[in-house]
């Protein structure tokens, strides 16, 4: 699939006169993982439901390969809803075959695929178990398999890591990485910033119905870089304390995190001053974590709106 593009244009949705999604626009290309981030109630789930055509936008357009979303009859979409949607009294296999056939798989194909994914997630022993006999995390895995089963071209996962243990989180990330390689669209929402950071290529942060940050992970990080550096040596570096241009943020076992407050001193000059005096084991530019950026931006906006 060389042409795989999802475009959201000025989409607005309100419930009972309160705007939940306000003129949201973004674009997702095949082969990149798109993270939809934001605090509770930001409108992530609502946006995903509109992409899945479960809800219709009040205004704006959702285009998949230049086609209006609600006109697409084909079955290119896979969806993991935020809450579990399984029949409690059905067995795992019955459930997966049903959802598979709804996506045009034959019963046989659905069964084969189901077993393949269940195996990867360590769930093959449960094919004939009833849904209500499974733990929450296990149900989450079944729901994930249901979303993958028909190998959709667009995969929308609403909080896929919720309820999964660390090992299964890794397995899921592997599966998603594989999926990404086939140039397909993957949109994920999560509250776990480390996961988003590892998984996503592109993120969109929304708060109070609006986009407050949109870009690739690296561009976002660059944008919010704090001019901070990290240096480590095998001996103490008193010189860092002596230079008045240097602000030490953190100091621990001959390792320093610092920033240069004054423009008179470039990092190059600093490094040349250190050279020869001490042996530098490690030097790098400190990138802010997504977690920090998230908190900073949301707090700033909340403060501004109050």
């Amino acid at each position: 699939m060389d042409n795989n593009l999802l475009e959201i244009r000025e989409v607005t949705k309100s419930f009972n006169n309160s705007i939940v999604v306000d003129k949201l626009s973004f674009m997702v290309n095949g082969g990149e993982t798109f993270g939809l981030l934001g605090p509770n109630g930001a409108g992530k789930t609502t946006m995903m439901r509109m992409i899945m055509n479960i809800l219709r936008p009040d205004s704006g357009e959702i285009l998949y390969n230049d086609e209006q979303r609600h006109k697409i009859k084909g079955l290119h979409f896979g969806y993991l809803p935020e809450e579990r949607g399984l029949y409690p009294r059905a067995t795992v296999m019955q459930m997966l075959i049903y959802f598979g056939t709804l996506n045009n798989l034959t019963r046989h194909k659905a069964q084969v695929e189901a077993i393949r994914y269940l195996d990867r997630l360590g769930m093959v022993d449960f094919t004939n178990a009833k849904i209500n006999q499974l733990s929450k995390g296990m149900q989450q895995k079944i729901q994930l398999v249901a979303a993958f089963l028909h190998d959709p071209a667009v995969l929308i996962l609403d909080e896929p890591f919720a309820g999964l243990d660390p090992i299964n989180q890794v397995v899921l990330r592997e599966i998603l990485d594989e999926y990404k390689k086939s140039k397909k669209i993957l949109i994920v929402s999560t509250h776990q910033m480390e996961q988003a950071e590892k998984l996503c290529d592109h993120i969109c942060l929304i708060n109070q119905a609006q986009v407050i940050l949109d870009g690739t992970i690296s561009s976002v990080k660059k944008k919010y870089r704090e001019n901070a550096y990290f240096i480590e040596s095998d001996q103490p570096m008193p010189i860092l304390h002596e230079l008045k241009e240097v602000d030490i943020i953190e100091e621990k076992n001959n390792a320093y995190k610092f920033s240069i407050a004054n423009k008179n001193l470039s990092i190059g000059e600093l490094l040349s001053k250190l050279k020869g005096k001490i042996k530098i084991k490690k030097f790098e530019i400190v990138e802010p974590s997504l977690h920090d950026i998230f908190i900073r931006l949301i707090q700033e906006q909340t403060a501004a709106s109050n």
Partner: peptide, 9 residues
């Protein structure tokens, strides 16, 4: 919430 899955397909 099965309805949500059904409505998506």
């Amino acid at each position: 919430r099965v309805i949500e899955v059904l409505l998506s397909y």
